[in-house]
Write a protein that binds this DNA or RNA. Structure first.
Length: 374
DNA sequence: AACACGGGGGC
DNA sequence: GCCCCAGTGTT
């Protein structure tokens, strides 16, 4: 379809929204710049994350990795540590890979076509559109949860927005209504509007500047939209964990695998116990969590002295599972064996509490450090 | 198309 | 407590 044809049919509300944005736009750090690297970082960091939560991370990130060159040169652990607490750690890993790719494949210049930008690690359809429209002023859609919700209501889209049909319907509407002037501002205006007026549960239709154009409101179904499939219940998993200290005051830590949940992050030895498996002696279970060493321990005659009762219990909820953690204290046997000093495999380390802050902690395990004493 | 992948804030 | 957020990658 030709541009000129669309221009004539352009809806009026987008310009209305842009005017609202001029007055009401939030003052965010990355809106002070057009530096595509900064825009890129802000977009990745804000995925599935509330702006207020990520703001301080963004400031810190820019202080630590002010340029894509700095980020490309940083090692992965440093990068993941800077992401600690934000979740979805693949974002950090992929962002680093992405800028490295820009250095190696694009001569240090972030590409400006959707195809190329979208090919960068961690950059999908949404982020590509955001970078192209905000940093490079291209008329590209950036469809996220806010946009899906706003359009579902404005045009009373009844299809499930989590499904292909719903997404396609809204993508067509966005393409139709995306203004030719200030596309980047428009995309950001949709975000601000979606997070302050057209909010998820109870939209603020009384004070909505777009109410005149809202089909869902006209039909009285604004609160019913958007339609989205219900997600299934998350499995609950018992996790028995041991804080095992040796006579030097060090704690035994384990580095999680480089793939999967909380990849490459540090944790205390633990074992996941299926709900069904009722075990009498729970304190022996963390031993199973250190399977690779268990044989060696037994050969060495090691017997961890476990404290009778658990130090604490805590529940940690992820998006797709839930850990019910039970934590026990254990003392590494006080006998001399040189081999014990040689736990040098990268997955296992004896670490002093004073060094804990340097580590990227696997979620709830970071909270357990308060129970460690030097 | 379905699922894996964190954590926190709003209500 | 529940919802869901400036999504992407893998299977």
């Amino acid at each position: 379809m030709s541009e000129t044809k669309n221009k004539g049919n352009m809806a009026r509300w987008p310009q209305e929204l842009l005017q609202w944005y001029d007055v009401n736009k939030r003052d965010l750090p990355w809106r002070q710049t057009k530096d595509p690297y900064c825009i890129w970082v802000s977009e990745i960091m804000s995925q599935q994350t509330r702006i207020e939560a990520m703001k301080p991370y963004y400031e810190n990130w820019m202080a630590q990795f002010p340029t894509k060159e700095a980020l490309a040169a940083a090692d992965e652990d440093t990068v993941v540590k800077a992401w600690q607490g934000l979740g979805y750690y693949s974002r950090a890993r992929n962002l680093r890979l992405g800028v490295q790719e820009v250095m190696s494949k694009y001569g240090g210049e972030i590409p400006q076509t959707r195809k190329e930008v979208e090919s960068l690690k961690g950059v999908g359809a949404y982020t590509a559109g955001a970078i192209l429209s905000v940093a490079f002023n291209q008329r590209e859609a950036a469809i996220d949860g806010n946009v899906l919700r706003v359009y579902a209501r404005l045009y009373a889209v009844q299809e499930d927005i989590m499904r292909t049909a719903g997404k396609k319907a809204i993508a067509a509407l966005v393409e139709e209504t995306l203004p030719y002037n200030r596309p980047g501002d428009f995309n950001q205006a949709l975000m601000d509007f979606g997070s302050s007026v057209c909010i998820p549960k109870v939209p603020r239709c009384e004070s909505c500047l777009l109410r005149r154009w809202c089909k869902a409101d006209a039909l009285g179904i604004a609160t019913e939209l958007p339609i989205r499939i219900v997600k299934k219940a998350v499995p609950i998993i018992s996790v028995v964990t041991g804080l095992i200290q040796n006579e030097r005051g060090e704690y035994l830590l384990h580095r999680r695998p480089s793939k999967g949940l909380l990849h490459s992050m540090w944790e205390f030895p633990n074992v996941e116990v299926p709900r069904e498996a009722l075990v009498q002696d729970k304190k022996s279970l963390p031993l199973i969590g250190v399977e690779p060493l268990a044989t060696y321990w037994r050969n060495a005659g090691a017997k961890i002295q476990w404290q009778d009762s658990s130090i604490t219990t805590l529940r940690h909820v992820f998006s797709h599972r839930c850990w019910d953690m039970e934590v026990y204290r254990g003392i590494w046997p006080d006998f001399v064996d040189e081999k014990i000093d040689r736990i040098e495999e990268t997955q296992w380390r004896w670490v002093l509490p004073s060094e804990f802050t340097d580590l990227p902690w696997a979620g709830p395990h970071g909270k357990l450090t308060v129970y460690c004493k030097s």
